[in-house]
Design a protein around this nucleic acid. Structure first.
Lengths: 161, 161
DNA sequence: ACCTTTTCGACAACCACGTTGACTATGTTA
DNA sequence: TAACATAGTCAACGTGGTTGTCGAAAAGGT
């Protein structure tokens, strides 16, 4: 009989997280290689999460921090960098003088639109290579094994290429 | 008329990398929650990769950097932090006066052994929840879609528990 | 209306983790 | 021996995160 925690025909347990991370990195690297070609060479992986957190409606730095699971100060610094790169702009909130809305520029919206399309294309590649049903099974399995709904990125440096 | 890149029954393409990352994060978070209980509360995820790159045989900071894909300076700083935490020690190489061997302490080896066992247990949980074959399919699919040696595990001795 | 509490944005100090470039000491090789 | 390659270190810096503090502005209770 095989070992209950690591049967002979299966790899060691540590391969699973490595494979998941490698899959993630592969997709993210390909996304940014494409984005670089399509007019967004300066956009880094962490910026994508931040732009997604801001959304087309815009938001404040504090709310951004809540969505990303980081402090409002960290979110504010990220907004500073995105502002310097031309992806967002800050406007005063006329309703609430404390707030400063962080809003996507046309460049920022363009990055979001292109990212969505590139991700769809990459997923289609995977579906073609693995078969649509196996890919759906993979996604369903991951959904089952992970707490739903996070695009938190308190993993600095893990995807910094 | 379904979109060719994102059929209606499938989620949007951007869900795939998020799910892969969520799976990775879930496993890593659970690993470190367990490690914290088992005497390694200070160990951070990046430290695990570094310890693995050092291996039971020990290595130099430069070689560490090559294995991890970072500069020798960055690897040296990581070794500094691991040394301060008691996971590694530095010894002079009697064969080559330029080199300083970074070697795991007993504490470092303990962390590696426990990590391997915890990963095996986590994989067994996934196998029980998803079925062994679907998990194997997931791993095989990921292996197919990712470049082979993403992280080199040249020192496989540490998972033989 | 007034006072208290909460929230927002900003500033400062700091840490983790990475980068280049420059430099010394030591091996290696033509 | 001279030239070159490599190991380690120091310095300066960039990015992305943390806590703590603060003043200004909004919100709420009396």
């Amino acid at each position: 009989m095989t070992n209950s925690t690591a049967p002979d025909q299966d790899g060691p347990g540590f391969a699973l997280p490595l494979l998941l991370f490698a899959g993630f990195r592969t997709l993210i690297d390909r996304l940014h290689a494409e984005l670089a070609v399509q007019g967004h060479p300066e956009l880094r992986p962490s910026h994508g999460f931040a732009l997604q957190a801001i959304g087309t409606a815009g938001t404040t730095a504090s709310e951004m921090g809540r969505r990303l699971g980081v402090s409002k100060q960290a979110a504010g610094k990220t907004a500073d960098r995105l502002e310097a790169l031309g992806y967002v702009e800050r406007v005063d909130d006329t309703q609430d003088a404390r707030r400063k809305l962080v809003r996507l520029t046309a460049h920022g919206v363009d990055a979001l639109v292109r990212s969505a399309r590139i991700f769809d294309e990459l997923r289609a590649e995977w579906a073609a290579a693995l078969g649509p049903q196996q890919l759906r099974d993979m996604e369903a399995g991951l959904r089952r094994m992970t707490p739903g709904n996070f695009f938190r990125l308190d993993a600095p440096g893990w995807f910094s290429s």
